[in-house]
């Protein structure tokens, strides 16, 4: 079964770019253009240095796309695989892993952009720095940057439970994907990706706003991976929140699997 989902996930990527000359490189290019464009735009808008702010936006956008893909395509996973579910008695995890694996492969393509960005701005990122108008000092790239790898693994592990749980719910209640789809754009702006909490919350009188902002779990998911990649400090709180969500989420997903696993083939 491992061969099946791994093959299908890879096939999904290849199929999208069949007969195009540069193939899956389009993933990298389209993401690169958007991310760099946004990075330059917001660096200028917020009066930030390109050397530190552009990598921040680009990496944030890449990580966000990975999370977004796991969520949006994850909740559609059983609906999209309806044909297969009704034709073969494979465990539901095959479809979930196919979807998450596809997102991991997309992420791997996008990491190329990160490598380029890193090569260009390495000097600015490898020393301690602060964003313009902020007080938080970031340590710069170092050995702790390797924490991005366990962070990526942790996000993927979360992607699996999200796809399982939301996949089951969305298969039964077809309004849920619509709700999430309409909220996700808003969440993108609510989560610090194009803006930075450093600058926003360093101004006085925003303590309450900061508290509310910490409640957004997506921030912590983005930050545990983005932080190490661009040499920013990551609060232990972010790791704790992500760890906690991983445990609770998996518990809920396993509960849903136990009770409704057999119903999915009836609902699709």
């Amino acid at each position: 079964m491992r061969q099946l989902w791994a093959h299908l996930g890879w096939q999904d990527i290849k199929q999208r770019y069949r007969r195009s000359v540069i193939g899956p490189l389009w993933i990298t290019i389209s993401m690169g253009v958007t991310a760099v464009g946004l990075g330059v735009l917001y660096a200028v808008l917020f009066d930030q240095k390109i050397a530190t702010y552009l990598p921040y936006v680009v990496v944030g956008f890449i990580v966000w796309n990975f999370i977004n893909g796991c969520l949006i395509e994850g909740m559609d996973t059983f609906i999209a695989n309806e044909g297969m579910i009704k034709q073969m008695p494979a465990p539901l995890s095959v479809y979930v892993l196919r979807t998450v694996w596809r997102q991991v492969l997309m992420l791997a393509h996008n990491i190329v952009i990160y490598v380029v960005i890193l090569a260009v701005f390495f000097r600015a990122l490898s020393v301690p720095y602060t964003l313009q108008g902020a007080s938080i000092l970031h340590p710069g790239l170092g050995w702790s940057s390797l924490l991005a790898i366990p962070a990526a693994v942790l996000i993927a592990i979360n992607g699996v439970w999200v796809a399982l749980l939301f996949g089951i719910i969305s298969t039964r209640f077809r309004d849920i994907p619509q709700v999430i789809n309409s909220l996700i754009q808003l969440l993108f702006y609510m989560t610090p990706i194009i803006w930075s909490p450093d600058t926003f919350f360093s101004k006085p009188g925003r303590g309450l706003a900061q508290l509310v902002f910490q409640l957004n779990p997506l921030y912590h998911f983005v930050q545990i991976m983005r932080g190490p990649m661009i040499g920013q400090q990551v609060s232990w709180l972010s790791w704790a929140v992500v760890g906690g969500i991983t445990i609770v989420g998996w518990a809920l997903a396993l509960l849903a699997m136990r009770n409704y696993r057999a119903r999915v083939s009836y609902w699709v």
Binding site: R18, G83, K86, Q87
Partner: peptide, 13 residues
């Protein structure tokens, strides 16, 4: 199970 001879076939490959 063979319900549909063509399931899992991809025209592009």
């Amino acid at each position: 199970p063979v319900f549909d001879l063509g399931i899992g076939m991809d025209p592009e490959i």
